[in-house]
Design a protein around this nucleic acid. Structure first.
Length: 296
DNA sequence: AAAGGAGGCAACCGCTCTGCG
DNA sequence: CCGCAGAGCGGTTGCCTCCTT
């Protein structure tokens, strides 16, 4: 028995949504809530595919959406998050209240790419275009590139991702914890911060993240996958540059250029060696899935 | 004023992931 | 363990609008 199509294509509308369709969808979701997208069109009296309804609601009709132009702060935050996460638009969107993954994806492709190119930065790698390593790692975002380099001891590459120019009120250490439930959450969009007002704190904080290669590993694979790591004990991901012995990846945070003193360790099976340590990307209590970092 | 081109964005498509029976 | 259904994600498409000639 084959898988049934998500909708009867011959009886569904396509293309732009009409005002009436929007009203029907809004009214139905207000009355019954989100979910059951497959059966929603029939129940709501819409001649649309369930997926289409979901997309329309998420990207356009949701009441908490922030319409309008992106601010300069949002631009910079998107650039920084993209340098960390690559084309994980849903994760990036999770850090920008009121913005959708589709909106950010479009904005990236139409505005930010050009902006970075004008700055002489390769939007795919976040490296200067003149940098020869840019071409070697072309199409691999920096995080994946660092992970890739980490698997090859012949590459002594350290990527520094600086948050110094990021408006401090837009990304804070405690906010980074929110990355945790976003990953593998049944409904990732529920992790939008509920309050759009983000207070400015720690104005002097110059938070930089350095992703460096392993010091004592000899992996042959270019890309270290979680399954690979799990087969090669110890599966430890160590944070803190001075405590990177046996590390696969070293995340060294530095404050105002000073070497970080944190000694937190994070293992890939979800246990934390030092729970008081800084929880990078909220991964303290969750396995890091490198598949989510690999770029296509 | 009209035609063609370029850019922006909403929507679609296909694939993957997850939960459940 | 396997297969199906539902949901979500990222890439791509196509239409609309604006700009240039």
């Amino acid at each position: 028995m084959g898988r049934s199509p998500c909708c009867e294509k011959s009886h569904t509308n396509k293309g732009a949504w009409t005002k009436e369709e929007d009203d029907r969808l809004i009214a139905y979701i207000r009355a019954h809530g989100e979910g059951c997208w497959r059966s929603l069109p029939k129940s709501a009296g819409l001649l649309r595919c369930g997926k289409s309804c979901r997309l329309r609601w998420i990207n356009y009709l949701r009441p908490d959406l922030k319409r309008g132009n992106f601010s300069e702060e949002e631009d910079e935050l998107i650039i920084k998050l993209h340098s960390l996460l690559g084309n994980k638009w849903s994760l990036i969107a999770g850090r920008l209240p009121g913005r959708t993954d589709n909106e950010i994806k479009n904005y990236w492709n139409t505005h930010i790419r050009r902006k970075l190119l004008n700055r002489g930065i390769d939007p795919a790698t976040h490296r200067p275009i003149s940098d020869p390593t840019t071409h070697q790692l072309n199409s691999i975002p920096s995080t994946a590139a660092a992970v890739s380099a980490a698997g090859n001891p012949s590459h002594d590459v350290t990527t520094t991702i600086s948050f110094a120019t990021t408006p401090h009120h837009l990304i804070k250490p405690e906010e980074l914890e929110d990355f945790k439930p976003v990953i593998n959450s049944p409904d990732r969009r529920k992790n939008y911060p509920t309050s759009p007002e983000i207070q400015e704190r720690c104005p002097d904080l110059n938070l930089e993240l350095r992703i460096g290669p392993p010091h004592h590993q000899n992996y042959q694979n270019d890309v270290v996958t979680s399954s690979y790591i799990q087969q090669h004990q110890p599966p430890a991901l160590v944070t803190g540059g001075r405590n990177s012995g046996g590390a696969i990846i070293c995340f060294a945070c530095s404050l105002n250029g000073e070497e970080c003193s944190c000694s937190c360790t994070l293992s890939l099976n979800g246990t934390s060696g030092n729970s008081s340590g800084y929880d990078f990307l909220g991964l303290k209590n969750v396995a890091l899935d490198y598949r989510s970092l690999e770029m296509k």
